[in-house]
């Protein structure tokens, strides 16, 4: 049984309240503004198309973060596959560069902190981003990522430790 629900005040409230945090998480995980925008839009459109809206903003926030996390993970895997293929190609043809200049400019426009974050492996980066930029506690992070709280604790520390080393080495 389907019933038409018009885009209402409730949904406007959802995206106006949660867009900043979802965009921030998407940007910090991917390190790419355009990609962060795509990810955030996709998450909100998915929520818009969801037949049963969630009861409160907190639940909605978790749901949207989970969607962003999943899309970002897919993107991460794709990026890794492309990098492998690119490395293989460069090994065969050392002079091959694929829009190398554009990539260089893109990297240069990123902040120092974002570059350091991007150097973290995805599973460490995501916990630190959710802790620092989404304001979630260990239990909430565990629930979103489907891991135990103890595991979150370990990953947060490792991410901090690794990030500290990256910042120190880059600062020198």
């Amino acid at each position: 049984m389907m019933q038409i629900v018009k885009p209402d005040f409730e949904f406007k409230k959802v995206y106006e309240t949660l867009y900043p945090v979802i965009f921030r998480v998407a940007y910090r995980v991917t390190g790419d503004r355009a990609l962060a925008e795509d990810l955030s839009h996709e998450a909100f459109i998915k929520y818009y198309e969801r037949r049963n809206p969630l009861p409160d903003l907190k639940q909605t926030k978790y749901w949207l973060i989970r969607v962003v996390k999943n899309i970002a993970l897919n993107y991460e895997k794709k990026k890794l596959r492309e990098k492998k293929a690119y490395d293989k190609l460069q090994f065969k043809y050392p002079h091959f560069t694929q829009s190398g200049e554009a990539e260089f400019i893109k990297e240069e426009t990123k902040s120092f902190v974002q570059k350091a974050l991007n150097k973290l492996p995805y599973n460490l980066r995501i916990v630190l981003v959710l802790k620092e930029y989404a304001g979630l506690n260990y239990k909430e992070i565990g629930s979103i990522l489907g891991i135990r709280e103890g595991n979150v604790k370990i990953r947060v520390f490792r991410a901090r430790e690794r990030l500290g080393k990256i910042i120190d080495s880059d600062a020198i």
Partner: peptide
């Protein structure tokens, strides 16, 4: 986008 649809029992 098209208007939202909601599943109602």
């Amino acid at each position: 986008l098209k208007p939202r649809t909601e599943r109602v029992s």
